[in-house]
Computed example of a mutant assay.
Amino acid sequence: MGTQSCVPVKNEWDIVNARQLGRKMAKDLGFGSVDQARITTAISELARNIYLYADYGTICIETYEDYGKQGLKIIASDTGPGIKDLRKAMQDGYTTSGGLGAGLPGVKRLMDDFSIDTKVGEGTEITAIKWLR
């Protein structure tokens, strides 16, 4: 584990703060502008989900190394209602908020590694990693 920074997510400004932190950390690590945009878009989607569905959570971003590969790991965790139907939530175009529906499938496509741990009534933790090429 490298450097880690966390942003609490309670309002829309926190989404902006999480995006800015992610972009700065991605740039500092050496990601190009296209990957920086992918990372900030993923962070934006994850933070927005916390804001819309969980009332409170955190976005933690850390520089990460595994077997000599460097990357950026994003951990979005909340104590919200959890995801009742994970399979449905991972379908393209699925949305319960009336949003664009890029949501979780979009985050999975934008990042290299993606996992979800969710328990109904307890919360959700989503981990996504983008590797530096």
Rank of each mutant, 00 (worst) to 15 (best):
S77F: 14
T79L: 14
Y64A: 11
K108F: 07
D117G: 09
R109D: 08
A102W: 12
I129Y: 03
K10T: 11
I61K: 06
I39S: 07
L72M: 06
Q36E: 08
S77G: 13
D35H: 00
E65S: 15
D78G: 02
G93L: 04
M25H: 04
R87E: 15
F31Q: 03
I59D: 07
Y53C: 11
S44H: 14
D112C: 05
Q91C: 07
T58N: 14
D35C: 01
D28P: 09
K69R: 15
D66E: 15
R87W: 11
Q36C: 07
V34E: 12
L100K: 09
I59V: 04
K108S: 12
I61S: 03
Q91K: 13
E12T: 11
V120D: 05
L46P: 01
G82R: 07
V9H: 01
K130L: 05
G80H: 12
Q20P: 01
R23W: 11
Q20E: 11
T127I: 08
Y56N: 14
M111F: 00
S115R: 13
Q70I: 11
I43A: 06
I74L: 13
K73N: 13
L104A: 00
K24N: 08
G22N: 04
P8G: 08
C60P: 10
M1W: 12
P8V: 08
G30N: 01
L21H: 05
L100P: 09
I39W: 07
G30Q: 01
I83G: 01
I129A: 04
D28F: 06
T63P: 02
G93Y: 09
N49H: 02
T63Q: 12
K10E: 13
I61W: 05
Q4L: 13
D35A: 03
D28S: 10
I15H: 05
G123I: 04
D112G: 07
G99R: 02
Y51H: 14
E12H: 12
K84V: 14
S33V: 09
I39P: 02
E62P: 11
R19F: 05
I126M: 04
Q20V: 03
G106V: 01
G71N: 08
I59M: 01
T127K: 05
T95C: 09
F114W: 04
I59W: 00
S115Y: 02
I75D: 09
K84T: 14
I126Q: 03
A37K: 11
D35S: 02
T79Q: 15
Q36T: 04
L104N: 01
L132I: 00
G71S: 10
K27T: 09
E125H: 03
L86V: 14
W131M: 03
E122I: 05
A42M: 02
A18E: 06
G82W: 11
G57E: 09
T127N: 06
R48E: 15
Y51L: 15
A76W: 00
I74H: 13
I116G: 06
D14N: 09
G68S: 03
D112V: 08
T95K: 03
S77P: 08
A18P: 07
G106T: 04
Y53E: 10
R38N: 13
Y67S: 15
S33P: 01
I83H: 11
K84G: 09
G123Y: 07
E125R: 12
G68K: 08
T124E: 06
